[in-house]
Design a binder for these strands. Structure first.
Lengths: 142, 142
DNA sequence: TTTAAATATGCAAATTATTTGCATATACGT
DNA sequence: ACGTATATGCAAATAATTTGCATATTTAAA
């Protein structure tokens, strides 16, 4: 189910054991609306059009939401983190080696391969999430 | 084929169009020997046991070797890059959410899924490499 | 082999992303 | 409404990475 209404987002925050604050709600709502992995810079930029918020607050909330399992944190070798809602589904994206383009691909399962990898592991028996990054050159840069 | 001898590594550097320097060779040789993704810090530390080398030199060489396609750059949300030899094979690793343990898993193919993703893409038609990171909690942290 | 131009290196300083200390403000169970 | 734990803003600190610049090394060509 998509998280859309303020009520749903509020419930999610509370049931994660986190306090409800305007900033925390706004951050989660923005990520729910955008659907693509977003940088902290972009997030701060977006939020500041509607409210006064410090970047330290954004960083701290991203950390708490991530630790609570509500967000996924991604890095595409761009030198800064990207965040998206944690849906429980795997996350797959195509990353341009030339510019910073990232294209999210949905609806493809690699679960059996993941299970195989876990079986082969000596140190890991369970996994919470996984992500695939496929690196290449996008149409625009080609 | 595994890259082991100094001659092989030298040939690889030259055919990539890069100049042959002792530092560049040592960096590539270290990554060829270690086989696991390595942080810049670890690499500098290892290299300094055998030679005098500045971290700026290491960073610059990692960039040039990466741009030449000889290295793969990975990030496990640890806040610093990891490098490994680019073998042309996909790279799969299990990443602990609690400590910085990374376990590399080999011999499992997800090529058909990658092909599906590329087919579905509007912006990408080719891919050079891909990597999967599976996040969970390792035995030690559990 | 010598030479010249391009590239590599070391060192220190700069940049960028992210985190932290601290004083104040807010959330929420009682 | 009250008290305590948590959140926030602001400025300053940290950590990873990059850059400027003077010097050294590599390499192709004479």
């Amino acid at each position: 189910m998509a998280l859309h209404t303020k009520e749903q987002l509020t419930a999610v925050i509370k049931s994660a054991g986190l306090r409800l604050t305007d900033h925390r709600l706004a951050i989660l709502a923005t990520l729910a609306r955008v659907k693509q992995p977003v940088t902290v810079y972009e997030l701060v930029d977006t939020l500041r059009k509607k409210e006064n918020i410090d970047q330290a607050t954004v960083y701290r909330n991203l950390t708490s939401l991530h630790e609570a399992g509500l967000l996924r944190r991604l890095d595409f070798n761009h030198g800064h983190a990207h965040y998206e809602l944690e849906t429980g589904e795997a996350s797959h994206q195509l990353v341009c080696n030339s510019c910073e383009t990232v294209e999210k691909i949905e609806g493809i399962s690699i679960d059996s391969a993941v299970q195989k990898m876990l079986k082969r592991s000596k140190k890991f028996k369970n996994a919470t999430t996984h992500s695939i990054e496929i690196y290449g050159v996008c149409k625009h840069c080609a």
